[in-house]
Computed example of a mutant assay.
Amino acid sequence: MARVFVYGTLKKGQPNYKHMINTAKGLAKFQGRGRTVEKYPLVIAGKYNIPYMLNIPGTGHHVAGEIYSVDDQMLQFLDEFEGCPDMYQRTLMRIEVVEWEGKGGAGEARAAADGIMECFVYSTTTYPPEWVGLPYHDSYDSSGKHGLSYVLRESRD
């Protein structure tokens, strides 16, 4: 099982969470909530209001999200869903555990107990330069006060 940190539309209560609980796509088990150890710019961009974490460590905010354990099938689905490696790149990032529900071996408990663990995160190094000037968010909610509702793929032109 791999650990994945999601900060956007795949979180609970967000438009694409349905994919995380669709066992036909693989297994994803919620482990807890966390935030990036480094600061990153989280922007909402493009005509479909997609959340992007720009891979610019040290700029922006400690981004909040959820930690999942996923099997190989789900990881492969997420790579395809996230347009990896073209739109997003999957990289390991250090995540500070804020709340832990996961149950597992001593190694997993120890990783969570010291507060920091490595998780795969979908961020991007390929984006229009003007995105750096967009407002930075510390957490994402499709129906947040930013007023930029995410457009589902099936509703795009």
Rank of each mutant, 00 (worst) to 15 (best):
A2K: 15
M74H: 06
R33Q: 09
G32S: 09
G147E: 04
V70G: 05
M53A: 12
E38P: 03
S155F: 11
G32N: 02
G115F: 04
K11Y: 05
A64S: 13
L54M: 09
G60Q: 08
L152C: 13
I21S: 13
Y122P: 00
T91I: 13
P129N: 06
H62Y: 06
M1H: 05
S142P: 03
P129E: 09
Y52C: 04
G65L: 06
E130F: 12
S155T: 10
E66L: 10
L134G: 02
V132T: 11
G104P: 10
M74R: 02
F77D: 01
T91V: 15
Q76G: 00
F77C: 02
W100E: 00
M87E: 11
M87F: 15
M20T: 06
T9I: 07
H61E: 14
E82R: 03
R90E: 04
Y88M: 05
P41A: 05
G104V: 01
C119R: 05
G46L: 14
G83I: 08
P51L: 08
Y127A: 07
M53Y: 03
P15S: 08
L27Q: 14
H62E: 13
R3A: 04
V98R: 01
T91K: 13
G105P: 10
E96F: 00
A45W: 06
V6A: 08
Y48R: 13
D72M: 10
T124R: 05
K39Q: 14
I21Q: 13
D79K: 01
K29E: 15
N16L: 10
L10A: 13
G34M: 03
E80D: 14
G115N: 08
T36E: 03
G105H: 07
S149T: 13
K11A: 02
L75C: 12
T36H: 03
E118K: 11
Y48F: 14
G104N: 00
R153S: 12
T125L: 12
S155Q: 15
T125R: 12
V43W: 06
L134S: 09
P135T: 08
L54N: 02
P51F: 05
I95W: 04
M93K: 15
R156T: 10
L148I: 03
R94Q: 14
D79Y: 04
D157V: 05
M87G: 00
V151H: 08
Y140A: 02
L54V: 05
H19Y: 15
G104K: 07
E108G: 11
Y48L: 09
A64W: 14
Y136L: 00
R35M: 15
E66Q: 12
A112H: 00
M87C: 12
M53R: 06
G115V: 09
R33N: 11
C84W: 03
G105C: 09
Y7K: 04
Y40E: 00
D86L: 11
D138C: 14
Y68Q: 08
V121E: 01
S123Q: 11
M74N: 06
S149A: 15
M1L: 01
L78R: 01
T125G: 15
Y150V: 02
R94L: 11
K12W: 04
S69V: 04
G8A: 06
G107R: 04
Y40C: 00
E154I: 14
Y140K: 02
G58C: 08
F30S: 01
A113E: 09
Y7L: 08
E99F: 03
Q73D: 09
V98A: 07
M117D: 01
N49I: 02
M20F: 07
L152T: 09
V4E: 03
K18N: 10
K29H: 08
H137S: 07
G26Q: 12
H146V: 05
Y7S: 03
R156E: 07
